[in-house]
Amino acid sequence: MPYSQYYKKSHMLHGSLLNIMGTVLDILLILDNESLAETVWRDIVAEVERLHCMFNRFDPTSELSVINRQAVLRPVTLNDEWWYVLCDAETYHRRTFGYFDVSLHDYRKVQLDAERHAVFFEEPLITLNFGGYAKGYALKKIQRILLAAGIRQALVNFGNSSVLALGAHPHGEAWNIGVANPFMPEQTLKTYTLCNNSLSTSGNTSTHTQHIINPHTGTYTPERKVVSAVSADCTDSEVLTTALMVADDTAAQKIKKVFPATKYDIFVI
């Protein structure tokens, strides 16, 4: 159940939603209108819950599950949103030299039919997983809802790994958000000054070492490594951190040139 609390003195709404895309979503938005703030929060909840269903590969009835089951057998016609998302995934696959791959295998084997807006998997092993993309995509949607409501100051935290900062902290020039060392939570690896951009972080934690797969080798990367990226584009930062977790140094240099506007740091712990 969504939680919300409006802090009248600060004109601030805090919204929180648990069990969404496998994590928790928190939003602080500054708006001098309590009822509008609550409406915006409800709109965001509805949108994020919609995306949760859309990208949920654990729910056999989700749109993604249907694609994963049927695209191996025959081309599946997509709605506009899925067509956009799969094309976007293809672009990112190309721009990261194959290190970002929602098929976790070889996205080149995912055929996109531009005429019919259909998808077909040439390879039976393929199953799409948007774990490294969906939260960035959701942040873009949230950003749109916030801006359309005239909100210019907000902080959105999607499970700590994807943070969107709109405008500045009400008493600062920006939102200063630090990345905590997952192995030593008291230690801050770096503090980023965010204003109208997003911070994405990928990495292994002490309890979670097998969740980022190298699509070129098919193996998990168990390194004690954290990658953070800041970009005005919420999916750019999201995709880049996932790719840089598995890319080697040479590949990382090449990827860097393709994303000149995205700043990133690789922390080896």
Binding site: P2, S10, T23
Partner: peptide, 29 residues
């Protein structure tokens, strides 16, 4: 729900007209 600790820190700051760094970003919770 359990809001992220960093968010609660931010709420506290804003409620008291203060500004400071908050470290909560990291691999997905």
């Amino acid at each position: 729900v359990k809001p992220a600790a960093g968010i609660l820190q931010l709420i506290n700051q804003i409620e008291h007209r203060m500004f400071d760094n908050v470290s909560f970003a990291g691999p997905s919770w």
